[in-house]
Computed example of a mutant assay.
Amino acid sequence: MVVQSGGNFKHTKNDFTVEFQSIEIPNARTINGSVFPLALEIKATDINDQEQISEILYEVSNDGKFTDLLTKHGAVLLRGLRNNSSKAFSKFVTAIETGRGRAPFEQIGLAGKRFKKAENVYTANEGPPRIRFYQHNEYARYSHYPSNIHFFAQKVPKHGGGGSPIANSNEFYNKVYEEIPDFIHELSRKKLTSIQVYPSKTKKSTVTRGNEFFWEDFDSFGKEIGDSDSFDVKKKKAEKQIKRLTDDFSWNEDGSVTVRQHVPAFRKHPLTQLPVFFNGLNGRYGTSRDADALKPPYHGKYGGVYLPSTYADGEVIAFQYLEVVNRISREIEFLHKWQEGDLLLVDNYQVSHGREPWLEGDERVVLVSMWDDLNGTKPSAYEP
Rank of each mutant, 00 (worst) to 15 (best):
N83S: 06
F115R: 09
V276K: 07
K268R: 15
P37F: 08
R330G: 08
L335E: 09
R100M: 14
A124Y: 01
N148D: 09
I25Y: 09
D217H: 14
R100Q: 15
E41I: 00
K203I: 13
P275H: 06
V257N: 07
K158G: 13
S380E: 14
Q50T: 15
I25K: 07
V176F: 07
I31W: 04
H269Y: 05
V259F: 05
F266D: 03
G210D: 03
S200Q: 10
E363L: 11
G255A: 11
E126P: 00
V18S: 02
F89V: 04
S200V: 01
P37T: 02
G222Y: 02
F221R: 01
D290E: 15
P270W: 03
D372P: 00
S169N: 07
R79Y: 01
Y285V: 05
P384Q: 11
S230E: 11
G161C: 09
W371Q: 04
T258S: 10
K113I: 10
S309C: 14
H11T: 08
L271A: 14
F152R: 06
N83D: 15
V346F: 09
Y311R: 06
F115V: 12
P296L: 07
D347F: 05
H299C: 00
I195T: 14
L274E: 14
S169E: 10
A293R: 00
P129S: 12
D217A: 03
P165T: 10
V325Q: 08
E253T: 13
N84C: 09
S329E: 12
R209T: 12
N120K: 04
N279C: 06
D219G: 00
K190M: 14
P264L: 08
G226L: 13
A318T: 02
E315W: 02
N168L: 08
N375A: 05
K243H: 04
S329K: 10
S169H: 00
